[in-house]
Amino acid sequence: MVARVQETPINSDYETAELRRLLKLSGAIVTFCGLVRDFNHLGKIEGISLEHYPGMTEKTLLRLAQQAVKRFELEQVRIIHRVGRIDNAETIVWVGCAAVHRQAAFAGAAYIMDILKQDVPLWKKEHYGESSVWVEAKSTDKDAASRWQK
């Protein structure tokens, strides 16, 4: 199980290979990549910055990975999140889940992303030329996370 933040670009091929290397039982791998869009509801943006809380962010990511393994009986989980300045189209977050069957791997990846967006201390700021604006939390993300509490 791996859960970390990094300032350097995420290499999806490397992360998938590392996930596969540790598998003994799995028949399914689901991976998710979150990307920086080049626009928001106001127009074009020029990249983002992601602030984190060193120590708490890593602990919360690891706890989330452990919860997903237990809840969905996953064989392996890998969560990699970028921090710092990130350009348009780059990967913000990469999640990989491996399980014996595909349903558990799909559910595990969806669970991790829904809870990550609600619980993990990370804050996004969008850049527009010389100015920048903090992204506000969305009620749809709260709703997505709450469905796992049922």
């Binding site: 809380y53 708490m56 999140h81 913000i92 993990v120 201390p121 804050w123 996004k124 903090w134 992204v135």
Partner: peptide, 10 residues
């Protein structure tokens, strides 16, 4: 002790 706004990662 830390103070911060609702999170917006992912």
């Amino acid at each position: 002790v830390a103070f911060f706004p609702p999170v917006t990662g992912g």
